[in-house]
Design a protein around this nucleic acid. Sequence first.
DNA 1: AAATAAATTTAGACAAATCTAAATTTATTT
DNA 2: AAATAAATTTAGATTTGTCTAAATTTATTT
Lengths: 220, 220
Amino acid sequence: MLNYTTSEENYIKAIYHLQKVDGMVTTNELAAELESKPASITDMMKKLKAKKLLNYQPYQGFRLTADGTKVALGIIRRHRLWEFFLAEKLKFTWDEVHEVAEDLEHVSNKKLIDKLDEYLGFPRVDPHGDPIPDANGKIEISKKICITELAVNTVSTVASVSDHSSEILELLEHKKIAIGTKVEVKKKFEFDNSLEIKINRQPVITISEQLAKNIFVYTS
Amino acid sequence: MLNYTTSEENYIKAIYHLQKVDGMVTTNELAAELESKPASITDMMKKLKAKKLLNYQPYQGFRLTADGTKVALGIIRRHRLWEFFLAEKLKFTWDEVHEVAEDLEHVSNKKLIDKLDEYLGFPRVDPHGDPIPDANGKIEISKKICITELAVNTVSTVASVSDHSSEILELLEHKKIAIGTKVEVKKKFEFDNSLEIKINRQPVITISEQLAKNIFVYTS
DNA sequence: AAATAAATTTAGACAAATCTAAATTTATTT
DNA sequence: AAATAAATTTAGATTTGTCTAAATTTATTT
């Protein structure tokens, strides 16, 4: 496996994430995501195309090749393993891990990452519930839906939370909702799209539409 | 604390290490140490001087200021804590830790390093026996001498080993010599400068001059 | 102390990554 | 389908870190 600069890695990772939403990624989208300028994007796209990480025709947007996707999954693996380490071993809170992992992810020593993985017990998801690719780049895509889509009176498990801020963390901790928590929607209110949910055998609690939109559960 | 580039940090660290031997560091020395060219050194010295990390007059060599030393100790702290982590937690061997730590040391998040330190139990020395600066940059300089200087029939403790290769590691493991091992020199041979030493209550063993030169013990 | 050698610095070039401003292509409107 | 707007690319500049080759300074020799 070749090595890439921190800058290249940040572009590759951003394209990977944007692709999941869009399929094809555009110059302006990527510039917004990376807080840089469209001209800088075009420059880098040429470079990544030359390295065969990207399919790219001028003016037509871009998407990662199979090779590019493999590189992206390697970066995401490193990022999420470090996030797990920071939360589990160093007792960082949920909202702090991302920023630190942004730096650690660029240390790309395969043996380091594989031994870290082993040390951590081969975790399957990071502290936000996002899946961690394995050493071969295989990622477990479990089907998830937003809790707002969950049928009433069906028990499910919280899979992930899409907002990673300290504010949502505070609220989730207060309501005793975490990754892995069993939840059941008891009632949906049309007026404000708030939900009444039950956690295990505790009394019903109310969650707002804004909160519900960020909570995803396994479909099963 | 300001942030420095990986390149700047590598220069600062190299100057710190060379200074300990020489006092004043020269352009060629540093170029050799960093495997770069003298012209590159001069360029960087101007930059570090402008940042007040370095005392430098053209043609006169250079030395870190108090600020520069503080920065160097921060880098060394990170490097040695990661070395300890790699050896202790991820079970890397002694000769493998340096290379990986060379990358990890440039992730300069104070909270990360202080929490790592705590997680590791505030270790005082890295796997080679070199002291780890604390969060305030204080470094414990314990007096050490080469085992070749140790008086006959005096028990001492192995403090550090200056060569970090896998070859010396193999030999040290075979002879059951490690950091912290209690040793006693029983006899010195003029002919080849080999030593006969005792480890704890085991039979006398012989070590060559080449090996002895790399073993340092506490003076106490 | 002049000549020579060694060390160091300067001058100018280059690659990587970024930017601004202008030009071009594609998309959208009237 | 022209005209206009939006998106994208190109051209040229800038910064950082590096280099080679030439010039300069310091050290060493005869």
